[in-house]
Write a protein that binds this DNA or RNA. Structure first.
Length: 556
RNA sequence: GCGCCUGUAGCUCAGUCGGAUAGAGCAACGGACUUCUAAUCCGUAGGCCGCAGGUUCGAAUCCUGCCAGGCGCGCCA
């Protein structure tokens, strides 16, 4: 808000200076105001003079002088301006000018920070979408948390968001699942059968087999093997999916819709999608297979949609799926994938262009791999031996809040070292507690305040916020004033980690303040003002943590 | 070989639109609890921003080339 004001003041000043003949050109650059890293450079600074030097044919410092000379500031927002370095104009804002931020936070409360970026557009975020052939691992956890948080963020910023999980319950991997369970059943029944390498090795298959044997007993072997495998496949997939759902729930991740790949086949949508592309003349036959002309849309080669043997590829159902997404009316579709699928991006993007969609309507977020460590040493994750630490193991060991926060304190495209011991530590190694502690501390203050003076918190309007003049107080208020900007930046770039870092910064300012000053003092009016300040801090922390899916404890 | 991602303090990581003197936490060292929660705070120390060029008033940030690590290059999913 203040930023906008100052921006306008600079522009007005430049215009006035031009009208007065001090500036030669009225071709002004965009006015960019930034917060200098160093306090001595003021609260806000602009490079306006440097950026405009070419058009004005003047030395930057001369331009800066002209602007500063023509600034009018009726509200007395600015305490001081100065021209520095190569031509920066630095603005020092009168500290009390920041105070209205507190009222704003109290008024908007849960909605503080909202910016209507989405304008009601419908967005679908599809994430996790792991095959129901085994339990989730930590990499899925990262995708789950990043996807969930992006969805929350977009939701908060004016999009109508739906979260969706795509279930790959068709195709070969499901058949393999059925066969794996069947063979384990045979072994349990004492039959001497080979368990092939390409079957699923994990112990969870044995567990499923045990439950099958317990339920069906010998009757399993009375039916034809094909039939048995098919039935077991469905049963196993269902059981595994239930486990996946439970794991995600434990992580605080819920979906609006679970979409089955098989239904795309059952309802003829895969065929329809191929027919659709055929009709656009984008499908051709070659060596007995059907190919999609992906190269026409920027992919490096054409891709098979129907194999020589007549079976469709995964790509074919994915085309159908995404076609269906847009038919459902989403303005934007966001897919969150593991980085090991990045080679697949151009192909699907090509298909979506072929559907006539704009590139802005489709975004793939790739999350990089997670290295699971314990005390700095890699935890062995041998899938072949069937020995791996599952997501479920990790969550029950370190807890949901810590797990989520760790996933969200890295850019999603950076590889992530997840150290189980660090994740459990209740120290500043683990900043989630650092942030939550702010919330708990303020709760504690409020409780005490309520005991001492029940009226103090009731009417924010009555508080004399002018009493807030300590440097730490102004720093906190300024920081909170930036929250909406941080959010819209995070939403626009789909980078929730920005919120996490913001919260850590805000938490640091609060803890410093807490250690230096008392909120509740003998001076009732001062206490009331400070109480309103810290409750505002608590609200910002709460709003931020909510977007990250992290809880806000009253007591720690 | 080609493509994508990553490379910033001893370790784990931030760094927006190119901005002024490079930012946290951990680890190290020295301090602060009779107080609203010490899961906290204050201070010290720590840098060839992978390397080399280029663009410009100005580069960790943009461009080119190289180096290192990860991932991907199926009629698999």
């Amino acid at each position: 808000m203040i930023k906008q004001h100052v921006k306008q003041m600079v522009l007005d000043a430049a215009r006035t200076a031009h009208a007065a003949g001090v500036l030669a050109s009225d071709d002004f650059p965009d006015i960019i105001l930034e917060e200098p890293k160093i306090g001595a450079h003021g609260d806000l600074a602009t490079n306006f003079a440097m950026a405009g030097a070419a058009a004005q044919k003047m030395a930057p410092r001369k331009i800066a002088e002209a602007v500063v000379d023509h600034i009018t500031d009726p509200d007395g927002l600015i305490e001081k301006t100065e021209i520095a370095g190569p031509g920066f104009i630095n603005f020092f804002i009168r500290p009390s000018a920041w105070l209205p931020v507190i009222q704003e936070i109290h008024q908007q409360d849960m909605a503080y920070g909202t910016e209507n970026l989405g304008d009601g557009q419908k967005v679908q975020v599809e994430f996790v979408s792991a095959n129901p052939t085994g339990p989730l691992h930590i990499g899925h956890g990262r995708g789950a948390v990043v996807g969930d948080s992006i969805a929350a963020l977009l939701d908060f910023c004016g999009y109508r968001v739906e979260r969706e999980y795509y279930i790959n319950d068709a195709g070969r991997q499901i058949l393999t699942l059925g066969r794996s369970v069947y063979l384990r059943c045979c072994q349990l029944a004492g039959q001497n059968v080979e368990f092939p390498e390409d079957a699923y090795q994990g112990d969870y298959i044995k567990d499923i087999a045990r439950s099958v044997i317990a339920e069906k007993g010998q009757s399993l072997f009375d039916m034809p093997r094909d039939k048995a495998e098919e039935e077991l496949a469905g049963q196993a997939a269902e059981q595994i999916l239930a486990g996946i759902r439970q794991d995600l729930e434990n992580l605080g991740v819920c979906f609006d819709r679970w979409y089955s790949e098989q239904t795309l086949y059952d309802t003829g949508k895969v065929e329809a999608a191929i027919a659709f592309l055929k009709q656009k003349d984008l499908i051709y036959e070659h060596e007995g297979a059907l190919w999609f002309c992906a190269t026409e849309f920027g992919d490096e080669k054409d891709r098979v949609v129907v194999r020589q043997n007549g079976q469709t590829t995964y790509f074919a159902s994915d085309i159908a799926y995404h076609l269906e997404k847009y038919e459902r009316g989403y303005d934007r579709v966001i897919d969150v994938w593991g980085a090991d699928h990045h080679g697949y991006v151009p192909r699907l993007t090509a298909a979506i262009s072929a559907m006539g969609r704009q590139s802005s309507q489709f975004t793939v977020i790739l999350t990089q791999l997670v290295n699971l460590l314990r005390k700095g040493r890699p935890v062995s994750m041998s899938t072949r031996a069937g020995q791996f630490v599952t997501l479920s193991d990790v969550i029950s060991e370190v807890g949901r809040d810590a797990a989520r926060f760790i996933f969200l304190t890295r850019h999603h495209e950076s590889p992530l070292d997840f150290d189980l011991e660090v994740a459990k530590a209740k120290t500043n190694d683990n900043p989630v507690y650092y942030v939550q502690y702010v919330h708990a501390r303020i709760s504690s203050i409020c409780k005490k305040a309520a005991d001492e003076n029940p009226d103090a918190q009731k009417s924010p309007e009555s508080a004399d916020l002018q009493r807030l003049s300590e440097a730490e107080e102004i720093a906190l208020i300024k920081k909170m004033g930036k929250y909406p900007e941080v959010l819209s930046g995070a939403a626009a770039l789909m980078e929730p980690h920005r919120i996490a870092y913001y919260l850590m910064d805000l938490a640091a300012l609060f803890h410093a303040y807490y250690n230096k000053h008392r909120v509740l003092t003998d001076d009732t009016k001062l206490s009331t003002a400070r109480l309103h300040l810290v409750v505002a801090v608590q609200k910002v922390i709460r709003n931020g943590l909510k977007l990250l899916g992290v809880s806000t404890p009253e007591i720690m």
